[in-house]
Design a protein around this nucleic acid. Structure first.
Length: 441
RNA sequence: CGGGGCAUGGCGCAGUCUGGUAGCGCGGUAGUUUUGGGUACUACAGGUCGCAGGUUCGAAUCCUGCUGCCCCGACCA
C-alpha cells in the first residue's frame, strides 16, 4: 500500500476529549472516529488492526473445536421474556420497536438466542459437546461510555456458548476455552493472567476474568510473580484430552491472582514478599459456567443415555476485540506512538521514501515493496511529499514493527536503514539484508 | 443516575464579563525555499459562532428553553 493513496487522517495535535493514551493514539493515528458517545467508526488503519485481532481469536476458537456462526444484532423481546431477562436487564439494553410496534432490542449478549437455536435442533446427548461462537457487534447503553473503544456502547465481541450433558462435561468445555484464551492473548503479544471472578448463582470455581497487565490499566490487580513466567500451552495442545487440560487449568489457577474487587489481603500476604506483584490491568476476556440458568426456563433439554430428558449445562465465553485494540496499545506504546506487536500490526513495515521523485529512492522502495509482497508481507510505503522529519514522526506514531528508511545518502553506499520500532535499534544494511530481516529468512 | 464543565473553520483555542464588520496556531491548497527527526516565507480557500425562541437599531457576546459532548463518582466486556 502506498500512503499517498491510503486514508490515514493523522492528527498532529491531541484531541482534548481523549483522556487515556490508547484513545489519544487511536485518534491521532487515524484509526477511529467517534460518531456519537461510545460509538465509533473504524477507519482503514484501525479496521486492519481489528481484523488482525479477530483473525487470531477465530483461529484459536476453531482450534479448540468451537464452531463459528453468526447471529443477528437485532433480537426480539419475546426471547428475553422467556428467560426473564427482558425486565431484569434494565436500561443498559437498547430497546427499539419496528413499524408494527413489535418490541425489539439491539443485543447486548446472546444467551437467549443461542439457547433457542440449540433447542430447535439438538435433542440427544450424542450431539454433545457443542460449542458455538460468533463475532458480532453488541450494544450496551452504558450510562457513561469512556476511554474510547475500551469502554464503548457499541463494541465487537466474540461470544462462545458451550452445551454439555452434565457438569463434568461442562468443565471440560470450560477448560477448552480457558486454554484457548491463554493462547489467544499470548499470540496477540499480551501477558494475560486468569483471575477468579464472581461465579454467579451456580457457585463453584468456574468463572475467570482474563486480565492483561498494562501500566495504564483501568484497575489494580494483585498476583503471584510466577504467573508471569508460566508457559502458555502450545499449538499442538490436544483439546480432547480432558485430563491434560485440567492439569493446565489447575496450574494456571494454583497461585494467588485477584482484581481489586476480589482482593483478599490475608491471602495475598501469604504469598512470599518477593513474589508479590501489584500492577494495573485490563480485563480482556471473561469465561463462566452457568449451568442450566437458561436451558431450564427456555426448555433446552436433551435425552441422556438413559433416555430421560434433562436441561443442558451451558457456559459462555467472551472476548472483546474492539476493546483489545485499545488494550494492546495501552500495553505497548511510548512517547512517540504505538508499538504494534507483530500479530496485530495493521501492516508489517513502513518503507520511508525520504525523497520521492529521486529515481534511485523510488526504484529501491519499489523493489523492497515488491519483494515483501511476494513473500506475503504487507508493507506501507510512505511516498508522500512530506519532509523526512514528518515521515519519521508519522512512522513512529503508527508504530509498525519495522521501518525501512530509504534515502539518497544511504543508497549512495548501497544501503538502507532498518529501524526496529519496539527498541529504537537502527542499523544500515544492504537491501538484501534488509529483506532477510523483514521476512525472517 | 448524582456532581462539574464545554459547544466559535478538519484539530487545538482566543473573543463572551463590558453587545458594534469573527480572530490566532496547527492542518489544507498554490508557489518559493528546504532536504535524514514535524523547515521558513508569501498568498489563497475554509465558519448558519450547537439548535430554537426572546431582548435590542444591532447578539458569538445578554435572557429562556432544548440538544450534543466531555470529566469525577456509582456501574460494567
Amino acid at each position: 500500500m502506498h500512503l499517498s493513496r491510503y486514508f490515514l487522517p493523522i492528527l498532529r495535535e491531541t484531541p482534548k476529549d481523549a483522556e487515556i493514551v490508547s484513545h489519544r493514539l487511536m485518534l491521532r493515528a487515524g484509526m477511529v472516529r467517534q460518531e456519537s458517545a461510545g460509538i465509533y467508526a473504524w477507519l482503514p488503519f484501525g479496521h486492519r488492526a481489528l481484523a488482525k485481532i479477530t483473525a487470531v481469536v477465530r483461529q484459536e476458537q476453531d482450534r479448540s473445536g468451537a464452531l463459528e456462526l453468526l447471529m443477528p444484532t437485532i433480537q426480539s423481546a419475546e426471547l428475553w421474556r422467556e428467560s426473564g431477562r427482558y425486565d431484569a436487564y434494565g436500561k443498559e439494553m437498547l430497546r427499539i420497536s419496528d413499524r408494527h410496534e413489535r418490541e425489539m432490542l439491539f443485543g447486548p449478549t446472546n444467551e437467549e438466542m443461542i439457547t433457542e437455536i440449540f433447542r430447535a435442533s439438538v435433542r440427544s446427548y450424542k450431539h454433545l459437546p457443542l460449542n458455538l461462537y460468533h463475532i458480532q457487534w453488541k450494544f450496551r447503553d452504558e450510562v457513561r461510555p469512556r476511554f474510547g473503544t475500551m469502554r464503548s456502547r457499541e463494541f465487537l465481541m466474540k461470544d462462545a456458548y458451550s452445551f454439555d450433558l452434565d457438569q463434568e462435561g461442562a468443565r471440560h468445555s470450560y477448560n477448552k476455552m480457558f486454554v484457548a484464551y491463554l493462547r489467544t492473548f499470548e499470540r496477540l503479544g499480551l501477558k494475560s493472567i486468569p483471575m477468579r471472578a464472581e461465579s454467579g448463582p451456580i457457585g463453584g470455581d468456574m468463572s475467570h476474568e482474563f486480565i492483561i497487565l498494562a501500566s495504564t490499566g483501568e484497575s489494580e490487580v494483585y498476583c503471584h510473580r510466577d504467573y508471569l513466567d508460566f508457559p502458555v500451552p502450545g499449538p499442538g495442545t490436544n483439546f480432547d484430552d480432558a485430563n491434560a487440560l485440567e492439569n493446565i487449568v489447575s496450574k494456571w489457577t494454583s497461585l494467588y491472582a485477584a482484581t481489586s474487587e476480589k482482593h483478599d489481603r490475608d491471602a495475598f500476604a501469604a504469598v512470599p514478599k518477593d513474589k508479590q506483584v501489584t500492577a494495573r490491568g485490563i480485563e480482556v476476556g471473561h469465561i463462566f459456567y452457568f449451568g442450566t440458568k437458561y436451558s431450564e426456563p427456555m426448555k433446552a433439554v436433551v435425552a441422556g443415555p438413559d433416555g430421560t430428558e434433562r436441561p443442558v449445562h451451558m457456559g459462555s465465553y467472551g472476548i472483546g476485540p474492539s476493546r483489545l485494540v485499545a488494550a494492546v496499545i495501552e500495553a505497548s506504546h511510548d512517547e512517540a506512538g504505538i508499538i504494534w506487536p507483530e500479530a496485530v500490526a495493521p501492516f508489517d513495515a513502513s518503507i520511508l521514501n525520504l525523497r520521492p521523485g529521486d529515481s534511485a529512492c523510488d526504484v529501491a522502495c519499489e523493489e523492497i515493496e515488491r519483494a515483501l509482497v511476494a513473500k506475503g508481507k504487507e508493507p506501507l510505503v510512505d511516498d508522500t511529499e512530506e519532509r523526512p522529519g514528518a515521515k519519521f514522526a508519522t512512522a513512529d506514531l503508527i508504530g509498525l514493527p519495522w521501518q525501512v528508511i530509504v534515502g539518497p545518502k544511504g543508497l549512495g553506499q548501497g544501503q538502507v536503514e532498518m529501524k526496529r520500532r519496539a527498541t529504537g535499534e537502527r542499523s544500515s544494511v544492504s537491501m538484501e539484508d534488509a529483506l532477510r530481516m523483514l521476512v525472517g529468512a
